[in-house]
Design a protein around this nucleic acid. Structure first.
Lengths: 224, 224
DNA sequence: TTGTTGTGTTAAGATTCTGTTAAGAAAAAA
DNA sequence: TTTTTTCTTAACAGAATCTTAACACAACAA
């Protein structure tokens, strides 16, 4: 689901956070030491990093700065007893996304973690994509419209998925062909129109959201 | 630089924040009313929204939820006197990115705003060009005038986009033709006039910003 | 002022683009 | 293999858009 790294030397706090997060099905890793934590973090495969400021061997601010210098984009939440305005600002200047002072509410922490994940998780692989009344399941190649299963052929499915993933963007026939049929496809680009027609027939008879962009191609409107 | 919307009904706080942010060269807009604030915010052209929770006409939590449902991706910081764990969690569940309780340190607020901008600006790349009350979205081929969608044909859209991108510069018909119709176009150059006329009809009836440069061609006046 | 040139505006005709259908080709299943 | 399903092509009609041509008016120069 999501990977979280906790760099914190107080064992009691470590355990408390770890427990809460595991309850929520996150994958949690621990580090009690600054250097060790930094080495783990720089791999950039954590979605969220909880970072204490006062640590053995390397302090939290430096860790944060160095990570940002390496383009690590994990969502970093600083956790510290330092509640001075000055310290807080230093924390943000070092590149933190959020800052919590101890003692803190565990629930608030998890709420802040979730908020951070919401922001970073754009490239998270979805198992289910919702759009209007539709549910698309890429792994099983199924589509439901108002909870009723709709049978689509493979090309129809791929086309729908691609359009929904790129909702709000007008996609040219050529773009669709190279992305869905492969760059070497050299047939008639109007094959796209035929599939669009089929999709509309099955899912959007009135073209309320699967729109034609005349002269360009097609797009799915962003919901409001 | 960055656009910030403040939805807050306490004038004193409004002014304080506004002052600080303007010092930092941010573009600031204010709203003291829930519905009004919501209407402004849903245009999604603010990078950060500071949102009070207790507001006239529509409460902050609902505003936040509705904005997220509309895919508004602004970085939302809730500002409120409610410091209860329960309220904070409600705030995050509604889709907030951050939550500050009053009274707060102005410096901390700006630090948090900067942190939010750092994040949104790296990820957000939905292209959008604003001019006067217009919003032009090249990726979806859409144009909005005061948040109302205006239907343009492809040529009209391309012409508008080109003019706006080159605002302040008088463009000859030949320039427009070679750039928008292609260098091999050999029709009547007055085709441009017809499209300009259509654009004015739809967007600028009084020619307040889409000007004729007699003997040359057309230009859009520069306002910033 | 008058003539000349350039632009605004309109409408009709030409052209391009898309929706739709059906039939043959290709691929998958039986 | 045969049967079934899916994909692709081709064609046509209708719609949307673009272009031309014409006229009236405005701006400018002499």
């Amino acid at each position: 689901m999501a990977n979280i790294l906790i760099i914190e030397d107080e064992a009691s706090i470590q355990r408390m956070i770890e427990y809460d997060l595991k309850q929520l099905d996150y994958t949690v890793e621990l580090s009690s030491d600054g250097k060790d934590g930094y080495n783990k973090a720089k791999s950039d495969h954590y979605d969220v990093i909880l970072l204490d400021l006062m640590l053995p061997s390397m302090n939290g601010l430096d860790i944060c700065k160095k990570l940002r210098n390496r383009d690590v984009e994990s969502y970093i939440i600083m956790l510290t007893a330092l509640s001075d305005e000055y310290d807080i600002i230093k924390g943000f200047e070092a590149g933190a996304d959020d800052y919590m002072t101890k003692p803190f509410s565990p629930r608030e922490l998890t709420a802040r973690i979730k908020a951070g994940l919401r922001r970073t998780q754009t490239f998270k692989k979805e198992d289910k994509i919702s759009y209007q009344g539709l549910i698309i399941k890429p792994s099983s190649y199924e589509v439901f419209k108002n909870n009723e299963k709709i049978e689509l052929t493979l090309k129809e499915f791929e086309l729908l998925l691609y359009l929904v993933k790129n909702r709000g963007i007008a996609l040219s026939r050529d773009q669709l062909l190279t992305n869905l049929w492969g760059f070497s496809y050299d047939g008639d680009s109007r094959i796209v129109d035929v599939h669009i027609f089929k999709l509309r027939e099955k899912l959007d008879k009135d073209s309320t959201w699967l729109k034609t962009v005349r002269g360009i191609g097609y797009k799915i409107v962003k919901t409001d």
